[in-house]
Design a protein around this nucleic acid. Structure first.
Lengths: 114, 114
DNA sequence: TCGACGTGTCGGGAGAAGTTGACATGTCGG
DNA sequence: CCGACATGTCAACTTCTCCCGACACGTCGA
């Protein structure tokens, strides 16, 4: 049984771009891509205090990128990737720019190496 | 006459993701997408002090997203979009995730509205 | 050469973010 | 019911970010 609230964003309090600014948070998302993880399990992957990781997770939750599922004495975090679409949208107009630059890089390399 | 240094990144001192965390900086890039702009011209678009904008531009330069071209008493800024490729690469594995979510959103909406 | 203009940089202050240790809460197993 | 465990939260400190006003430097036009 799934409701609409499972799919729509929960209240967003943090900018997605800001949430992604921190490398630890990006790695947390990368981990969650492989499936839900308990908080401690996530904390173990980083040389960081547990509270620090917990607060990073809270920032991600504030950006709507993560959902919590309490389950016994564990709390599982799930990836919630929809807000990333905003980043994708912003990035899209630039895509052909950097492809163009890569092409010209190749051309210059061709010239330099010939 | 173009050399390889025009195409490769200059010394990067700031993380690209951090550079994009600020909305003003994203808007600066959006402006530059339409062509090179002088510093004052860019500053005029925001209700911000000139020094503030100048420092934002410096951050963008630190991330390799912008190039300066001094020209008389103006200084023109050019978009340098290659570093955005890194963002695109990071984002790519998530793309199918959010597409999937959008699809399930549509399905839920279908159900709710029927 | 001199004043006006375009811009970068410096110093400082307000506020946000990151980190850590200590404590509080809730859950499981015996 | 009680101790161990998984986790969140609080207080405090440090560091970073963002912003501004003021000043310095180079360039243009007369």
């Amino acid at each position: 049984m799934s409701g609409i609230s499972d799919v729509l964003l929960p209240t967003v309090t943090t900018d997605v771009f800001s949430a992604l600014a921190n490398p630890v948070r990006r790695q947390l998302l990368d981990s969650l891509r492989e499936g839900p993880r308990a908080a401690g399990e996530l904390a173990g992957q980083f040389s960081l205090s547990r509270p620090a990781v917990s607060e990073h997770l809270q920032v991600l939750r504030g950006a709507g990128l993560v959902r919590e599922e309490p389950r016994g004495r564990h709390r599982y975090y799930h990836l919630q990737p929809q807000p990333l679409a905003e980043v994708g949208q912003w990035l899209h107009p630039y895509e052909h720019f950097w492809r163009e630059r890569l092409r010209s890089l190749r051309d210059v390399l061709d010239e330099e190496l010939s």
